[in-house]
Amino acid sequence: MSTLTDPAPALVWATPTLSSPAEHLERAGERLWRVLDAHDAIRGHLRVVADPLGVRYRAERLQLASGAFRLVGEFWDANDAVAALRF
């Protein structure tokens, strides 16, 4: 039996598939992945964002001093978002 106070089930987002072997993803949250290079150094983060037109991917970097994420860019393709973190 469901009531109005029951929390909605969390969506489990599948890990995006990357076409480049230069990076891989490690889950860091419900909609967040760390982008790691071949030496497991963190390049940044990939966040899934729901958009009325479909799923968007945000490339972000964590600023340690403030503890906040800085937006690098928002893309329709996960590979494009990860590529933005290479520089």
Rank of each mutant, 00 (worst) to 15 (best):
E26T: 11
M1W: 11
A84Y: 01
A28S: 11
A10F: 01
P21G: 11
A50W: 00
S66V: 05
A78R: 04
V49Q: 09
H45I: 00
F75A: 07
E30G: 02
R34W: 01
A41V: 11
E60L: 15
H24Y: 08
H45F: 15
L71W: 02
L71M: 14
A65S: 14
L85D: 08
L36H: 05
W76S: 12
D37A: 10
L18P: 11
V48T: 03
Q63G: 05
G54W: 04
A8M: 08
D77N: 13
V12M: 03
R27G: 01
R27E: 03
T17N: 12
D80K: 11
E60C: 08
L62M: 15
N79Q: 06
T15D: 09
T15F: 05
V55A: 11
V72N: 04
H45V: 01
S19T: 15
P7S: 10
L46E: 02
R86S: 15
A50Q: 07
A28N: 04
E23C: 15
E30S: 04
L53N: 12
G29I: 01
E74C: 12
R34D: 00
V35W: 03
V49F: 00
A84K: 00
A41L: 11
A10L: 09
E30A: 06
V35L: 09
T3R: 15
A84D: 03
P21R: 14
L4E: 13
S19G: 14
A41D: 12
A8S: 08
G54I: 05
G73L: 08
S66F: 02
M1Y: 12
L62S: 07
A50F: 01
R86L: 11
W13L: 14
L25K: 05
T5P: 06
A38F: 06
P16I: 06
A50R: 09
A81W: 03
G73W: 03
S66W: 05
S2E: 13
R43S: 11
W76V: 09
G29E: 00
R43P: 02
P21S: 15
L64K: 13
L32I: 01
F75W: 07
P7Q: 10
I42P: 09
E60P: 03
W76F: 08
V49T: 06
R70T: 06
P16E: 10
L46W: 03
R61W: 11
L71H: 10
V55M: 14
A38G: 09
R58Y: 02
A68M: 08
M1V: 13
F87N: 14
Q63A: 09
A81C: 07
A81Y: 05
S66N: 05
L32K: 01
T5L: 15
L71V: 14
S2L: 13
A14M: 10
P7F: 04
A78E: 04
S66G: 09
V72L: 08
V49H: 03
D40F: 06
F69Y: 14
E23V: 10
V72Q: 12
L32Q: 01
A38Q: 14
G73E: 07
A38V: 11
A38E: 13
L25Q: 07
